[in-house]
Design a protein around this nucleic acid. Structure first.
Lengths: 331, 331
DNA sequence: TTGAAAGCGCTAACAG
DNA sequence: CTGTTAGCGCTTTCAA
C-alpha cells in the first residue's frame, strides 16, 4: 500500500524531464540509448507502471477491449470465457465491467459512455437493453435488445430452440405446458415465447394465458409467477422456462409445493449454463453455445477495430436440446 | 458511433460553465435549482455520461472494485461470479481485468499499478504470482503466491484435498500413482504436491520422481509431461493433477495413447470447474468452493475499504472429494 | 450563485 | 537528443 510512483517520480529520480521518460518507456524515437537505459533502470527500481487511465486520456488508444455485462451471472461468465479465449493471442487486454449500481434500464448506455472515448478501444455488450448507443468505438452486441439493430450482433436460434423444447414436451404426452417468459425487451426472449406458442399451435393445443407467466429472468418474479401457476387446480404438467436460472427456480418452487420433478412436473430451461447439469435433478435444457457466442463477437469486433467491414453482421448460432432428469411423461 | 458528448458540450448547450455542470451533475451545494434543472435537461437530451476515467483522475474515489485475473478461464470465472454476487447489493461497480498481453510473471503487479491510484477503490487479485505490490488501494489475494503474505488472503485447503484425492486412489488399490504439478509459485500448488507425497508416504508407498511431472497449469506443458509419463513401460495406473484443466488434458493424452479411462488409467483433478462434470467421462476431482472464495474475498475487501481491520486476514475454506467416472481400481 | 483557473498523470507537438 | 508547453475531461478551490 505504498504510494504508486508516477512518471514525475521517475523523471526526478532519473534527472530528466517527464517527456523523456514517456518517450523512453514507450520506445519513441529520439532518445539517447544511455538515457533510455538509465530511465528504464529507475523504472525497474521504483516499480513504475504507467497509469492506464492517464495514458488513455491522451492517447485515444489503449489496447483494451471492454465487455459490458449487467451482472456476472453464469451466462455472462460463459460468454466472457469465450471472449477471453478468442482474444488470448491478440494484443488486447480484456476488461469486463458490470454496473452493479444501475440495474436500471440503460445500464449499458451508461457503462459504455463512461468507458468509451478513453478507456477502451472497442466493446462487446451482453444482453443490452438499449441498442442505440453513442460510443466513439466499435461495438458488437450479444443477444441484443429487440428493435432495429444498427449494431452488429451475435445470438443463437432462440425460436428453434424453444420450438424443439416445447415439442419434446408434447411428444412426451404433455398437453398442459406452461411458460415462464424472460426479459421482454430482449429479442431472444420474444423468440422463445414465439417458439413455445408455435409448438403448441402446431400440435393443435390451445395457448392458455393462465399458463404463461412473466419472469423477466429475475428470481423473485419467476418465483411469484411459478407459485401462481403451480398452485392452480388445473396446473400444468410441464413448464418451459426462458432461461436456466428461471427453470431452476421453478424446480425449487415445485419442490416447496410438494411436487416432485419430473414425476409431477417436467421442466425445461434454456442456455445450459454449468449450473444446469450440476443441479439435482439435472436440468433438461436447450443448449446454446455461449462461449462461441463470445468468441464470435470478439472476432467481429477485432475486424471492426481493424477497419474491416464484416461481411456478416448478424450471426445466428444453432441450439441443441439436451434432455436430462427434469423431463418425463405426465403422471 | 456518434461522438460521446463531454462536459464541455453540456456546458455550452446549457449556457453555463463546466464547473457548474459538474456541480449540478454531482449534486453539489451552491447551484440554483433552476440552473440544476436546465443542466440536467441538457444532460438528458445529449445523453451525457461523465467519463469514468476523467472523473477518476481528479476525485480519488470511483466506486469501482477491480478483480485482477491472469485469464478468464473457468476458475477465475467462478470466482468472479462469487464476487459479483457478494457485491450485488453494495454500491460498487465491478471491473474485471485480464492483461492478456502479459502472461509474464508479475502481470498482476502491472495491472494493479495501472488501474489503482485512479480507476479502482480496491482490488482482488486471483492467483497472483507476486504478493508484494504497491497499490494505493486495499488489496485481497485469492489463492496467492507462496512466500510471506502481507496481504489478506482467501484460499482453500489444498493440502487436505490432495491428501484425500491421493488416498482415495490408494484405497482403490493403485500403487503407482503419478502427479502433474501446477504453478510452482502458488502456495496452493505446493500444498497439493505435499498432500500427494504425504498420502503416498503414509501408505508406505515410494515417491517415484519419474511419476511426478511439471505442468504449471499450462496445456502444452501438461501434455508433454503426461506423454512422457504415460509412455513409460512402468507407467502409473492413476494420476492426480493439480487442477481440472490439467486432468482433462491428461485424459485426452491417455486416449490418444490408446489408454482407456478409467480402465487403464484413473485420473483425479482439482477445483471442480463446470467443465469437469461436463466432460466425458465426467472427471473425478476435489471440489473447492470457488464462488465462496470470491464472495469471501469481496467481503474482506469491503471491510478493508471501510477502514475496518478484519479480525481474520487469512481464510482457508474446506475442500471435498467428488468421485465421478474417471476413477476405478487398477486393471 | 457562478465561473476562472489549477491540476490529476500522461503524451505529443514543438522548440531549443 | 532533450525539455517546454499544451492539453485529454473532469473536479475543486477560490474569487467575483
Amino acid at each position: 500500500m505504498k504510494r504508486r510512483p508516477t512518471i514525475t517520480d521517475v523523471a526526478a529520480a532519473a534527472g530528466v524531464s517527464v517527456a523523456t521518460v514517456s518517450k523512453a518507456v514507450n520506445g519513441r524515437y529520439g532518445v539517447a540509448p544511455e538515457t533510455v537505459d538509465r530511465v528504464l533502470q529507475v523504472v525497474a527500481d521504483l516499480g513504475y507502471e504507467s497509469s492506464l487511465i492517464a495514458s488513455s486520456m491522451r492517447s485515444r488508444t489503449t489496447g483494451v477491449i471492454g465487455v459490458l455485462v449487467a451482472d456476472f451471472e453464469p451466462f455472462s461468465a460463459e460468454v466472457l470465457k469465450g471472449v477471453g479465449q478468442a482474444l488470448s493471442d491478440s494484443r488486447y487486454d480484456l476488461l469486463a465491467y458490470s454496473g452493479t449500481r444501475s440495474t436500471a434500464e440503460g445500464w449499458e448506455r451508461r457503462s459504455l459512455s463512461r468507458l468509451s472515448g478513453t478507456l477502451i478501444d472497442g466493446a462487446i455488450m451482453v444482453t443490452p437493453t438499449v441498442v442505440n448507443v453513442n460510443a466513439d468505438v466499435p461495438v458488437v452486441a450479444i443477444d441484443p435488445h429487440t428493435g432495429p439493430a444498427d449494431l452488429p450482433t451475435v445470438e443463437c436460434d432462440s425460436f428453434g430452440g424453444a420450438l424443439q423444447a416445447t415439442r419434446s414436451l408434447i411428444d412426451l404426452g404433455h398437453t398442459r405446458i406452461g411458460f415462464i417468459a424472460g426479459r421482454p425487451d430482449l429479442r431472444s426472449s420474444i423468440a422463445r415465447d414465439a417458439g413455445y406458442r408455435r409448438a403448441l399451435t402446431d400440435a393443435g393445443l390451445p395457448v392458455d394465458p393462465a399458463l404463461v407467466g412473466s419472469g423477466s429472468y429475475r428470481q423473485d418474479a419467476v418465483r411469484m409467477a411459478a407459485l401462481e401457476m403451480l398452485r392452480r387446480s388445473d396446473r400444468p404438467t410441464a413448464v418451459f422456462a426462458a432461461n436456466d436460472l428461471s427453470a431452476l427456480e421453478i424446480v425449487r418452487v415445485a419442490s416447496e409445493l410438494g411436487l416432485e420433478v419430473p414425476r409431477d412436473l417436467s421442466v425445461i430451461g434454456f442456455d445450459d449454463v454449468p449450473e444446469a447439469s450440476k443441479a439435482i435433478p439435472a436440468l433438461s435444457t436447450v443448449r446454446q453455445p455461449m462461449q462461441v457466442l463470445g468468441a464470435e463477437a470478439a472476432r467481429m469486433l477485432l475486424d471492426l477495430m481493424d477497419g474491416i467491414t464484416p461481411t456478416v453482421t448478424h450471426v445466428k448460432l444453432p441450439t441443441r436440446l439436451v434432455l436430462r432428469e427434469t423431463t418425463a411423461p405426465p403422471a
